[in-house]
């Protein structure tokens, strides 16, 4: 395991042409904006830094880089080492509606070149944004074409760059950011292992761990037949549902959106029971269980009892190197067992 991946501060660059939607995206995911509020945002001047505490042990150091040509020129020349040094992730946003796509890609490859010089081990995510503006039947084809074209210009990152179609008007935004976040979480495999144990104990069909402020999924465990659930995009759908609900609660109760958290939500029907409750300081746990009051009540109590165990993983307030070492070995062990989806190995790459 690469020791730099254990850093608590991860530098994330958010770049792309002016007006592509970088700040809008950031405001929705991290600052509790709703999609229609983003038109109030002005242009980003130079770089806006934000530090986002995520899952306690992970601090995202997000650089929202203004995309006007003058600024980009400046990043590439005077500030080259400052901007592109020690980057963990570059998120490059393309506007699907852009009239000068070729020029956008030229600018992209300049940035990629600077990145491969200063931070060769960084990971690149390309978001093809504003997909809602394209007619539904043309979307996937256009997305494929653009991705291939951009991949060809990605130089040393050609094989590792990931593409996502996004729109702030639906859950595709959450899907993309969930992947980005998953890449950044250092001990995801450990969390997943613990979650799986918990799922076995309480006989849950599915457990999903969400970060509390952003409502992004951290990880999930699906058991038995729930894996046949036809809604394969359900994780980001629930993210989006929770986020929208948070807004609505905040509006009604006059609590700022950042702290309008519910303590618990239960839904009981004849086909399933579902509840979502606080697990640790930074996470909510959603559980889908069989429709039975007994299982439901037992599950609630067991989750309450498991809280302290998960809180240990949330090492926000007590950075102990020894503990991290322990996680490293556990997570190795887990990825060795192999739960089929190969997620544990991501960190070794």
């Amino acid at each position: 395991m690469n020791s730099s991946r254990r850093q608590k501060q991860r530098k994330v660059l958010l770049m792309g042409k002016s007006g592509a939607g970088k700040s809008s995206m950031r405001s929705i995911v991290f600052s509790n904006y709703v999609a229609k509020d983003v038109r109030r945002l002005g242009a980003t001047i130079d770089v806006e830094h934000s530090n986002i505490k995520f899952m306690g042990n992970l601090m995202l150091n997000l650089w929202d880089c203004g995309g006007q040509d003058g600024f980009v020129e400046n990043y590439l020349t005077h500030q080259r080492a400052h901007v592109f040094g020690s980057v963990a992730v570059l998120i490059f946003v393309f506007d699907i509606e852009s009239r000068e796509f070729a020029a956008d890609v030229v600018s992209y490859s300049n940035i990629i070149r600077a990145l491969s010089e200063c931070s060769p081990s960084a990971k690149v995510f390309c978001l093809i944004h504003k997909m809602d503006l394209v007619q539904a039947r043309l979307r996937s084809q256009l997305f494929e074409e653009r991705s291939e074209y951009i991949r060809a210009a990605s130089e040393t990152f050609k094989d590792t760059v990931d593409f996502f179609p996004t729109s702030i008007w639906d859950q595709s935004l959450y899907k993309a950011w969930t992947q980005i976040i998953y890449f950044l979480i250092p001990n995801a495999a450990t969390i997943e292992g613990l979650l799986r144990q918990l799922a076995e104990v309480i006989d849950a069909r599915e457990l999903i761990l969400y970060e509390r402020t952003t409502c992004l999924m951290v990880t999930h465990v699906t058991r038995d037949e729930e894996s046949q659930n036809p809604f394969t995009d359900r994780f980001e759908r629930i993210s989006s549902i929770l986020k929208t609900h948070k807004q609505s609660m905040a509006k009604h109760t006059n609590i700022p959106p950042g702290s309008a958290n519910f303590a618990e939500m239960q839904i009981k029907t004849g086909r399933f029971m579902f509840f979502i409750t606080r697990l640790t300081e930074n996470t909510n746990l959603a559980a889908a269980i069989p429709p039975s009051e007994q299982v439901f009540n037992a599950a609630r109590i067991n989750i309450m009892l498991a809280r302290s165990k998960f809180a240990e993983l949330d090492i926000a307030n007590k950075p102990r190197p020894g503990l991290q070492q322990a996680f490293a070995s556990v997570s190795m062990g887990n990825s060795g067992e192999g739960d089929g989806d190969g997620r544990g190995e991501d960190f070794g790459v």
Binding site: E225, A263, E264, K268, T269, R271, P291
Partner: peptide, 30 residues
């Protein structure tokens, strides 16, 4: 999302006398 048709298991649930008929939900705020 979670109410998809699970086939035989559903019939089983219908026979179960404890199964609830009317969906209910509750939200408590922090």
């Amino acid at each position: 999302i979670y109410g998809w048709d699970r086939g035989d298991e559903e019939a089983q649930a219908r026979n179960n006398e404890n199964a609830i008929n009317d969906a209910e939900s509750l939200i408590t705020l922090e």
